[in-house]
Amino acid sequence: MDSAIIIETVRSVVASSTPLVFAGIGELLTERSGITNLSLDGSILLAAMAGFAMAYVSGSLLLGFALAMLVGALIALVVAASSIYLYQDQVAVGLVLTLLMADVSSFVGLRYVRLPGPSVPSLSIPGLSALPWVGTALFSQNLLVYLSYLLVLGVWIWLYRTQPGLRLRSIGERPEAAFARGIPVNRMRMVYTGIGGALVGLAGASYSLCVKLGWSHNHTAGMGWIALAIVIFGGWHPFRVALGAYLFGALKSLGSLMQPVYPSVPTQVFQAAPFALMIVALLLVAGDAAAIERRLPARLAPLVRAVFQHGTPAGLGRRFEQG
C-alpha cells in the first residue's frame, strides 16, 4: 500500500478511537477509586443523544458537550451514591441504568433522529502537523483528538506524579488504609465517579458531534461495553488503556478495509468481530502473568509483564464503611 493511504488510515483510526479513549480513561478514574460504573453503554447513548440535541437546538457545540458531560456525570453519581449511601450492588445498579438509559435515549431522542447537525471542525496544529509521517496522522486532527492526548498524559501525571493521584490510587486499593491517613474515601469516590462519568458523557457527544455524526436509535450501542473491556485489557493504566482503544479502532478499520477485499466473507462476521475480539482480548489478559513468565525465557519477561500484568484495584466494587 501507498504510504499516503497508511497515513490516512492511521489518522482515521486515531480519530475514530477518540471517544473510546475518553470513555476508557473516564472509567479508569472511576474504577481506580473503587467504583465500577457498569452503566457506560447506556450513559454513552444518552449523552450522545443529549449532546446532539442540545447542539442542534442551541447551535452551540460547547453547550452540547457540556450537557453530555453533565448527563454522564449524573448517571455515574447515581451508581456511586446508591452503593455508598444506599448499600446497593454497583453491578446491579449499573446494569439497570445501562438498559434504562438506552430506552430513555430512544424515547427522548425520537425527534432528533437523522437530522443534520453541527460537527467539530478539524484543526491542524501548525508545526507539529508538518512532521513527516506522524504529522498528518496525529496532528492534522480535530480538537477532541488533541484533548484526548492531553487527557491521557494528564491522567498519567496525575496518577503517578501528584499527591492527589497517589490518594486516588490508595482509595481504590485499600480504602481502610486511605481513611486512616485522613482521606475522605467516600467523598473522593463520589468526586472521581462524577469526573469519570463526565468523561464518559464526553465520549458520547464525541460520537454524535464528531466521529459518527447525528443521532439515531442505539446510535453507539455496544461501545460502552467495549470501553469497559478496554479498561480491563489496559490494566487500569492510562497509556495501556489508550493503546487498547487505538488497537481496537485499528482492528475495526482493518475489518472494513478487508470487507471489499474478501466479498465472500459474510458482512455479519465483521459486525460481530469487535465483540468476539473483546472476549479474546480478555482471555489473553486473564492469564496468570507470573505463571506464564516462569515458563518462558527470561528475556521475554518484560514483554509478558507488559501484556499480562494487570493491576485490578484491590478495593474495586467493595463498599467502604467509614468510622
Binding site: 453491578v91 469497559l228 480491563i232 469487535p274 465483540f275 468476539a276 480478555l282 482471555l283 486473564a286
Partner: peptide
C-alpha cells in the same frame, strides 16, 4: 478462561 461472565455473555450476545 477466567473471563468475567458479564463480558463473555455480552460479547456472545452480539455474536
Amino acid at each position: 478462561g477466567r473471563v468475567n461472565e458479564i463480558f463473555a455473555g455480552l460479547g456472545l450476545n452480539y455474536v
